[in-house]
Design a protein around this nucleic acid. Structure first.
Length: 596
RNA sequence: GCCCCUGUAGCUCAGCGGAUAGAGUAAUGGACUUCGAAUCCAGUGGCCGUGAGUUCGAAUCUCACCAGGGGCGCCA
């Protein structure tokens, strides 16, 4: 925002150093880490250190300070209110009013696109969620799903074109088990309204029955054999029940406000996968150990001539010739690039336990000369466990069902809303409860480092206080309240907020006001960082910081009751805050309600 | 045995080479006749797992070790 000034100053520093024979090192600009007055700073430690290395007898911090002081004398730049040299740093403070109006005007001009980057024309695919059909959808699956949606929004906003891909596991041993259980215990039944939950129950029952009576395994194997031979009855049943699951997923994604552009299914990758395996064997990259009773494997370390084990050996086809996930993933990589030849990156958001699997799949294709494998990447995230370090498993029934959690969160939110704001109609309450409940659920997931294990407990999941979505939403609501109130005043109204008008902060700004403007100004940078590092956490944090700064501002600075001149500037600031919060929440896939 | 992740305030977590390491939470004390108190303000709370190294400067980078978790030929 002050790039021109920064460049001018940098040029001045350079010419000063040249004139005085000081070998200036590259300058890095950072915001001054103190609130209340805004500015940028740079340091001379690197330069002083270089002098020391060159043989000059100097104490580095002292020398840095010396240079800073000398340079300070040279500074006289419009837009910069004052300059100071402290502890080796050169601090340049912006003229506060100038700074304030630039930030606020920028936000109001750009409104819904404030914070977004220029379109790069580059396209990436992100695969996420990949639920298993014929199984329950639980809180363990929620993390990747929530994270994926947010990441897509962030990548898109940062300037990329994004393809959102889903890859449901629609065939495998778990599906066969389910079909067997259905035929045996629920034949002919139709699913109730809550499809996914019911599908999960049928699966859990099948697993339980099999554990109680292992002799039944033979029946399951029979179903598998019938599937392999494409027995029309089994295929038809599979198709019908698979559709039930997919319908359940669609409902759930709609409830969570999650979207996909493209679905891939592992059942479709089976054949092409086997063809790739054959090719790899033919070319001597894979070893067919089936004659000796083994499987088809790729000894990756050996192929690369590595002596230390690193990529290890990957099994790409079972000894009985049936496909594994690895078989299908080989095909999927190619399938994606065939569909979208211009993909700059093909990303897989999958939990950390599959790290080795993906490095192996990509490496094998690379060895086979498939160059686009190098554009593939695995973004890993840690699991959600239950207290006591229990991993959620639909087989063992140690799960917290998403349906239950959603219901609980929204009903808690509704109760709270009714208490806090009795004026709301029942209809409003429902929509507010959905926004608050879902937000409260999503935020803690997004506000945590991807690589960090999350322990699920009801209490913190349903906690609406502190650093949480409702706090941010509340700030948005309060912005809205102020703007609404101002609109009703005859001498204010909307004209004050028109983007052509321009903000005039020609009074002494309150520190809270400056802090708020500062936070808003950081948003675009945080978007770029979040996209580059695949970290929604960054957005979750800045959204909270803005809300927090607004809460202090709200307390310290009257808006509608201020003098007309101050009121107008602050109204524009409030509108800018509301817009920035809304943009940030949108990236997190969290609603920004007008009332709550 | 090899590889990956995590260790920061009582608890949950930010901070990713720079100035005095920050939030939330819990506990304490204040602030509603004023734009919505789901809020704000104040003090309290720290050998940044341990030990070396790199650097003018390390919670941050490198190595070793300790502790916890995960992954390593036919699960997904």
């Amino acid at each position: 925002m002050f790039l021109t000034e920064q460049q001018t100053i940098e040029a001045k520093i350079k010419s000063f150093c040249d004139a005085n024979n000081i070998p200036l090192a590259a300058l890095e600009w950072k915001p001054i880490p103190f609130s209340g007055e805004w500015g940028i700073s740079t340091s001379f430690f690197a330069t002083a250190a270089a002098e020391a290395r060159a043989g000059k007898k100097v104490v580095v911090p002292q020398r840095a300070q010396e240079i800073a002081e000398q340079v300070k004398g040279q500074m006289d730049t419009p837009g910069i209110s004052r300059v100071e040299a402290v502890k080796g740093y050169l601090n340049l403070y912006f003229s506060t009013n100038e700074y304030a109006h630039r930030v606020v005007d920028t936000v109001l001009d750009q409104n819904t696109s404030f914070g977004s980057g220029p379109r790069t024309g580059s396209r990436v695919m992100l695969e996420f969620s990949h639920p298993n059909t014929h199984k329950a959808f639980h809180v363990g699956h929620l993390r990747g799903t929530i994270l994926g949606e947010s990441l897509c929004r962030i990548l898109e906003f940062s300037g990329l074109d994004v393809v959102r891909a889903n890859y449901p596991g629609d065939m495998g041993l778990h599906v066969i088990k389910w079909l067997w259980g259905y035929l045996k215990f629920h034949n002919g039944e139709q699913p109730p309204a809550d499809i996914t939950k019911w599908m999960g129950e049928v699966y859990a029952e099948a697993t339980r029955r099999l554990e109680e009576n292992p002799d039944l395994e033979a029946e399951v194997r029979l179903v598998y054999a019938r599937w392999d031979q494409r027995d029309p009855e089994v295929v038809a049943l599979w198709e019908r029940t698979r559709e039930w699951s997919l319908e359940g997923f669609r409902q759930m994604y709609a409830a969570l406000d999650i979207h996909f552009d493209k679905y891939y299914f592992n059942s479709q990758e089976e054949k092409p996968g086997k063809e790739i395996v054959e090719e790899l064997v033919r070319r001597g990259i894979a070893t067919d150990e089936r004659p000796e009773g083994g499987a088809v494997v790729v000894k990756i370390d050996e192929a690369l001539g590595l002596t230390k084990e690193q990529f290890r050996t990957s099994v790409i086809l079972r000894s009985d010739g049936t496909a594994l996930y690895a078989t299908e993933d080989l095909a999927l990589v190619k399938h994606k690039f065939a569909d979208y030849p211009d993909l700059a990156k093909s990303l897989y958001l999958v939990d950390v336990r599959q790290s080795l699997h993906f490095t192996q799949v990509f490496k094998i294709l690379e060895i086979a000369g498939y160059e686009q494998a190098q554009q593939c990447g695995h973004i890993s995230y840690e699991l959600v466990t239950l207290p006591g370090n229990v991993v959620m498993s639909s087989r063992e029934g140690t799960v917290v069902l998403l349906e239950d959690l959603l219901r609980e969160a929204t009903s808690r939110a509704k109760e709270e809303s009714r208490k806090k704001n009795p004026a709301l109609t029942e209809e409003q309450l429902d929509s507010v409860a959905k926004a608050i409940g879902l937000g409260a659920l999503k935020y803690p997931i997004l506000a945590r480092e991807n690589t960090r294990l999350v322990t699920f407990d009801w209490q913190s999941a349903l906690d609406f206080n502190g650093q949480a979505a409702p706090y941010i939403q509340y700030a948005h609501v309060r912005c809205n309240s102020i703007l609404r109130k101002a609109e009703d005043m005859p001498d204010v109204g909307q004209p004050a907020l028109s983007s052509s008008k321009g903000s005039t902060f020609n009074y002494e700004l309150n520190p809270a006001e400056i802090q708020l403007i500062d936070m808003i100004s950081r948003f675009p940078g945080e978007v770029q960082r979040a996209a580059a590092e695949y970290k929604p956490l960054t957005i979750a944090t800045i959204a909270y910081e803005i809300a927090k700064a607004f809460a202090s501002f709200y307390d310290a600075c009257p808006v509608v009751q201020a003098s007309p001149q101050v009121r107008e500037a602050r109204l524009r600031l409030v509108a800018a805050t509301k817009q920035t919060l809304a943009n940030a929440l949108r990236l997190l896939s969290i609603e920004a309600p007008e009332v709550m």
